[in-house]
């Protein structure tokens, strides 16, 4: 069996919403991936816009690196509004 490359599919379900990852499929090129994504993921009008991205083009963070990769955000509580001491009654 001849294998076509893998594409990741992202769908905007309504205007005003982000494109969201919905799944993947195999296709020879972008145009074909779009058509297959339409047939596979929007048979009931679940989308108003589709993005397809060749899976091999995606760079992803690695689970093994999570500890050091996301660590810099860990001790920065001052990035959250609740860190600051202000009077409650002012509803800041």
């Amino acid at each position: 069996m001849n294998l076509l490359p893998l594409w990741e599919v992202f769908i905007r379900t309504r205007r005003g919403l982000d494109h969201k990852h919905i799944g993947s499929l195999h296709a020879a090129d972008g145009a074909q991936a779009l058509q297959a994504a339409r047939d596979t993921y929007t048979r009931r009008q679940e989308g108003v816009s589709i993005w397809v991205v060749e899976a091999s083009k995606i760079h992803a963070s690695q689970f093994e690196d999570n500890a050091s990769f996301f660590e810099p955000a860990e001790d920065k509580v001052y990035r959250h509004p609740t860190f600051y001491d202000v009077p409650d009654e002012l509803n800041l």
Binding site: L3, S24, T40, Y41, R43
Partner: peptide, 23 residues
């Protein structure tokens, strides 16, 4: 029947995320 084909596709792609090839 077309839906069932789609269900097959959703599931094959889920299995592929575990490193199993479609082929």
């Amino acid at each position: 029947v077309q839906d069932e084909a789609g269900h097959g596709l959703y599931l094959y792609s889920a299995a592929e995320t575990l490193g199993e090839s479609r082929e």
